[in-house]
Design a protein around this nucleic acid. Structure first.
Length: 490
RNA sequence: GGCAUCGUGGCCGAGUGGCUAGGCUCAGCUCUGCAAAAGCUGCUACAGCGGUUCGAGUCCGCUCGAUGCCUCCA
């Protein structure tokens, strides 16, 4: 079916992808914490995994894609006085915590829809899986890898590390971590600073709380992902993804929890998407160094020279590999937009091409293979896009009759282009919508083109240039070609 | 301080040790009444220093610089 290789963060190597169950893939991706609008950096990660999801499906796999919504309680810091960002926001906006969660979950969904990202197969919430999380804590205690203190339960990292390897994902050694611990005077219930909370007792003012065998409280941050991934995908599943910044401690803790609980390594392929930077620094909610998707789409921001559509933004992101840091700038986006428009124009020309020959003078099969080779090499979308650009040369040569193509090859060409542009990359050609309004506009502009051509025939260039320039000023550009004049909207 | 990643031509950005990535910009040409659009052609770079090798952007070492994680973050 394929020769897909995936870079596995835990082995730091590209490995041939072999799913646990033939023909099916289980994939879990850490979703957003819904206490504010998702910013563009958040979106990049989800779009990276949308590409993975789409390509796996395109290859014919039956994919169960689980992406959680974190709607409860992890703490801003691990100290006793930690604040839950959702609660904090609820106070700030004078809303019930679940109103905050609802508001930003909706925002997340509408934003991802604008990017034409596919919804996951299952989108579970932390608050919907309290029972499962409590159950895991009980099991970890039973296995002897957790202890209870004053109503809270902590994972015993040192104990775990005696029999397992804590730090194998992030490449850390526990002894180094201990050596580098800055002794913060905070009076903690933890035995060791490296331990992390599985269950936290709620302070009286903490609204989001659930009963448990240890206290009225809330689950630790890392726990929900273990609970929900294993519930829906099994104790051992194929792919776990997330942002690079979650590698440590979040994913490390997930491995520890799952191994402590189920005595098996939870994930076969760990994938980490790299950061989107702004001014050379990671986009981040807490530092304020970010741009919101809607600010991009409307142009309502101080960073960019003009608005950019969701599909252009996505195309820009896919021109870099998901494991590379990508810096965000107006120049880079404008370059992408021009390239994107050229690609879409070529695709429209391709759709109107006919086969006039039995023989092909271009090797579509080889080109098609190079597209798959690119994606099979750890989802290398920039290489794929380079090949798509290469095909523009074919399209133009065919259009001008410099090359020929057989009927079979032409169909294959069209299908391959369509598949990669729209199914795999999930782009949208929004430059040519066929709404009724655009048909009326088209009729009007066609009339002006006709009048202009009459003026040109009469050598009345003052008039013909006026029509051309005035339309251009309105964002309607006339394109004079050999076969007549067409127009495009800017 | 610890762990890790990265440093590619004017800009963005791929690169499995040996063959032109690609996009944007720019220049020339074709087309055009002139333009624009489109097309074609051109632009050989890999932070620095040393090493391995017949051969290194690609491997190793050092130096410089940047970033990420080590506290919530995609």
């Amino acid at each position: 079916m394929n020769d897909l290789h995936i870079y596995n963060s835990i082995s730091k190597k590209k490995e041939k992808f072999t799913p646990i169950h033939k023909g099916a893939v289980g994939m879990y991706v850490c979703g957003p914490t819904v206490y504010s609008n998702v910013h563009l950096g958040n979106c990049r990660t989800f779009l990276s995994f949308d590409l993975v999801f789409r390509y796996l499906k395109h290859l014919g796999y039956k994919v169960r894609y689980v992406r959680n919504i974190t709607d409860a309680g992890h703490l801003e810091n691990d100290g006793e006085s930690g604040d839950d960002p959702i609660l904090k926001k609820a106070r700030l906006e004078q809303l019930e915590p679940m109103e905050v969660v609802q508001k930003y979950t909706v925002d997340f969904h509408t934003t991802m829809a604008k990017f034409n990202a596919l919804p996951p197969s299952i989108e579970p919430t932390a608050t919907g899986h309290i029972y499962e999380q409590i159950h895991i804590v009980e099991k970890i205690i039973e296995e002897g890898f957790a202890y209870e203190r004053n109503g809270s339960v902590y994972f015993d990292v040192l104990k775990f590390n005696e029999t397992n390897d804590y730090g194998k994902l992030s490449g850390r050694k526990l002894e180094d971590m201990i050596a580098n611990t800055r002794e913060l005077a905070a009076q903690s219930d933890k035995k060791n600073p490296q331990d992390f909370a599985l269950w936290k007792k709620a302070e009286p003012q903490h609204i989001m709380r659930w009963p448990s065998p240890w206290s009225d409280g809330f689950p630790g941050w890392h726990l929900e992902c273990t609970a929900m991934s294993t519930k829906y995908l099994g104790n051992n599943f194929d792919i776990h993804g997330g942002g690079m910044d979650l590698k440590f401690p979040h994913h490390e803790c997930e491995i520890a929890q799952a191994e402590a609980c189920n005595n098996t390594s939870p994930v076969n392929y760990w994938m980490h998407a790299n950061m989107l930077t702004l001014n050379g620094k990671k986009m981040s909610k807490s530092t304020g160094n970010f741009i919101l998707p809607d600010q991009m789409f409307t142009g309502n921001n101080d960073i960019l020279s003009k608005p950019f559509s969701p599909t252009v933004t996505k195309f820009f992101m896919y021109q870099a590999h998901y494991r590379s840091i990508l810096d965000f700038s107006s120049d880079a986006l404008e370059a992408s937009e021009k390239g994107f428009n050229r690609l879409m124009e070529a695709h429209r020309i391709l759709l109107n091409l006919d086969s006039s020959d039995d023989k092909s003078t271009i090797d579509i099969e080889a080109w098609r293979k190079s597209c798959y080779d690119a994606m099979n090499d750890d989802f290398n979308s920039p290489i794929l896009i380079a090949h798509l650009f290469e095909s523009i040369k074919f399209v133009n040569a065919l259009k001008e009759g410099k090359e020929t193509i057989s009927k079979v090859d032409l169909e294959l060409f069209k299908k391959t282009m369509h598949d990669f542009l729209f199914e795999v990359l999930g782009l949208e050609d929004n430059t040519s919508d066929n709404s009724q309004d655009s048909e009326k506009l088209s009729a009007a502009v066609e009339l002006l083109i006709e009048l202009r051509n009459e003026a040109r025939a009469d050598k009345d260039f003052a008039l013909s240039d006026k029509i051309r320039d005035e339309l251009a000023a309105k964002g309607i550009q006339l394109n004079d070609g050999k076969k007549g004049t067409t127009f495009s909207l800017n």
